[in-house]
């Protein structure tokens, strides 16, 4: 593992949080997701197609791109959340540790247990703070030492100190940023291997956003983190690897495609593709 000097692209604001970027060499990479020719269609519209990439363990991988380019669709296809959308169809393969999560006999419920997700809008259950975190473990039968588990999850989500005195209060009484960290705590309480974050900070103020970014950084030792963001600076701040999605218009049909996938520094400073360059320098989108 090596640490590069962080080169900040021109249009990116200086980052205050400590940042340690990882760019493991090809031999050190641990492939978690191996995605081959992935396409997702909703009825007649194709949301994304032809996506090929590998996502590596214990890194933060960011997906950026203009709105409507299929970033959310992509991330939701990694834990089969698209199954819930009527008419959604997934083609291609999503290999998770070598196993196709869309393969025969694979249980989407088991997939989602192992691959946690945090959504754009904080969605705590209308329950107490404690019950929000404890609900998942209870349902999954992890009932031993539940209090410790809840405390550990809240601590890891950097929320414990703020809520330890009011665990029985409604989760809806928390601020937006706290709610989102609670959702992260809820996701890690069931010990997933991967955390998918779908624009987790888009509804938060800058301070709450910084807290979430710092948290992601702390979590990557233990989890593989995939984040979708519409905010390029955020990707530049937190991600080790970044993928750029764009829209391809053909015969009036708009399809999301993967344009470029690189080390974050390279993608932002020296992109190989013209479209990426236009996007990261602000000429497009």
């Amino acid at each position: 593992m090596m640490t590069d000097d962080v080169t900040i692209p021109v249009d990116v604001a200086p980052v205050e949080i400590a940042q340690e970027r990882r760019t493991p060499s090809p031999t050190q990479r641990k492939v978690v997701f191996d995605i081959r020719d992935l396409a997702v269609t909703y009825g007649p519209t194709t949301a994304i197609s032809g996506v090929d990439l590998e996502i590596y363990g214990n890194l933060i991988t960011a997906f950026i791109g203009p709105s409507g380019c299929g970033k959310s669709t992509f991330i939701r296809s990694l834990n089969r959340m698209n199954d819930l959308v009527p008419g959604a169809k997934v083609d291609g393969r999503v290999l998770y540790h070598g196993q196709d999560i869309y393969g025969d006999g694979v249980d989407p419920v088991e997939v989602r247990r192992r691959i946690g997700m945090v959504f754009q809008r904080a969605n705590p259950f209308p329950k107490s703070i404690y019950d929000n975190v404890a609900w998942g473990p209870r349902v999954l039968g992890m009932k031993k030492a539940l209090d410790e588990r809840v405390e550990k999850a809240l601590t890891r989500a950097a929320l414990w100190d703020e809520v330890k005195d009011r665990l029985k209060k409604s989760a809806l009484s928390l601020s937006g940023g706290q709610q989102q960290r609670l959702c992260i705590a809820r996701a890690i309480a069931i010990e997933p291997e991967v955390l998918l974050l779908d624009e987790p900070a888009s509804a938060l103020d800058p301070i709450a956003t910084a807290a979430i970014e710092e948290l992601m950084h702390d979590l990557k030792d233990q989890y593989t983190i995939v984040i979708v963001t519409h905010n390029m600076q955020q990707a530049a701040r937190v991600a080790d690897m970044t993928a750029f999605f764009s829209l391809q218009v053909e015969e009036g049909k708009r399809t999301g495609i993967l344009v470029e996938y690189e080390n974050t520094d390279k993608l932002f400073t020296n992109p190989a593709d013209k479209r990426t360059e236009d996007y990261v320098t602000g000429r497009f989108g």
């Binding site: 959340m81 419920v109 989602r112 969605n123 259950f125 209308p126 609900w135």
Partner: peptide, 26 residues
């Protein structure tokens, strides 16, 4: 809200567990 239902399912709950844990209580 759909987000609540998705939140429950994303934790690896079955549909019935989502109903029992989220929809009915709320």
């Amino acid at each position: 809200p759909d987000e609540l239902e998705e939140g429950a399912l994303a934790l690896g709950a079955t549909r019935w567990e989502m109903v029992r844990g989220v929809i009915l209580p709320s």
